[in-house]
Design a protein around this nucleic acid. Structure first.
Length: 279
DNA sequence: ATGGCTGTTATCCG
DNA sequence: CCGGATAACAGCCA
């Protein structure tokens, strides 16, 4: 489920559920998700620790804890492509693809991830190279343009580079470029300041709207019933919420001009755009 | 049913 | 150094 809005909505969901709760049991099912932290080190940090805050940076969930020893500690969670996190009753069966679970006394905090691209780790190195948070004031057209100019890549691929702007993924990159009227194949370093300003505004609006929409919905966090209703909201059966304007709409009419949406492949990933609105 | 596709990203090669 | 390809995985769809 993981781009900035989905991670932000999840952090807001988990914060009140976990804050103040104490970890009484830890089950690390897939130690590969720990990166460089050892299972023993993570176990030691978590066992007896109390959650003090859950928040987000880029696509990472940040779990702030006060350890049993009384020290402050941050655990990073990343959902990869298919990660989910939720709190379930202790009596419910732990899901097939659980990678780690933590007993909270009466309830269990579960991280499940079928493709196992996710992470749950004490290793904070991956935060060091992240670019600006797109929803913060410091992110503007000039800041974005500076990032776009650091290579000759197509602008779509620049947006996926987390050191340029943090939290944009494959779906919202296409959506933002559509809103800004910029073709994904344009070299990022060739954009004008005015175009970068439009793209910056488009990124902020598309991410901001998705956070607001996701926060307003009553989501099924386990996703067991609906066909993936939690992620990229509006996919649920009978749900009339508009989803995307170009992503996954190859051949369908552009919502603005009616021309058929095109799909191209860039760095082995699909990009979608309107050939008329995005010259 | 086989192969191509999927919301991520670290690493490997040319 | 740069940028594209691949690998890490499992499931879904045509």
């Amino acid at each position: 489920m993981p781009e900035l809005p989905e991670v932000e909505v999840l952090a807001r969901h988990l914060d009140p559920l976990l804050r103040g709760r104490t970890v009484v049991d830890v089950d690390i099912v897939r130690p590969k998700i720990l990166l460089t932290s050892s299972p023993g080190a993570l176990q030691a940090a978590l066992l007896g620790a109390r959650f003090t805050r859950v928040h987000r940076r880029a696509k990472y969930l940040l779990f702030e804890l006060e350890t049993a020893a009384g020290t402050q500690c941050t655990v990073l969670g990343h959902l990869g492509m298919t990660g989910r996190m939720y709190v379930q009753p202790a009596t419910a069966p732990v899901p097939k693809h659980a990678v780690i679970s933590m007993g909270l006394g009466g309830e269990i905090f579960v991280f499940e991830d079928t493709r196992r691209f996710g992470r749950f780790t004490l290793d904070a190195k991956c935060l060091e190279t992240l670019g600006p948070e797109p929803l913060e004031d410091a992110f503007d057209g000039a800041r974005l343009l500076a990032g776009l100019r650091s290579s000759r890549q197509p602008v779509k691929l620049r947006l996926l580079d987390q050191s340029v702007v943090a939290g944009v993924g494959n779906i919202y990159a296409s959506e933002a470029l559509f809103r800004a009227g910029i073709r994904p194949t344009r070299r990022g370093c060739r954009l004008t300041l005015a175009e970068a300003g439009r793209l910056c505004a488009a990124i902020r609006s598309v991410l901001g709207e998705a956070v607001r929409l996701g926060s307003s919905l009553n989501l099924d966090w386990t996703g067991k019933d609906a066909a993936g209703g939690v992620f990229y909201y509006g996919a649920g059966p009978g749900d009339a919420v508009e989803r995307f304007m170009v992503y996954d709409r190859e051949g369908l009419p552009c919502v603005k001009c009616g021309h058929a949406i095109k799909r191209i492949v860039q760095a082995a990933r699909s990009s979608f755009f309107c050939p008329d609105c995005q010259q």
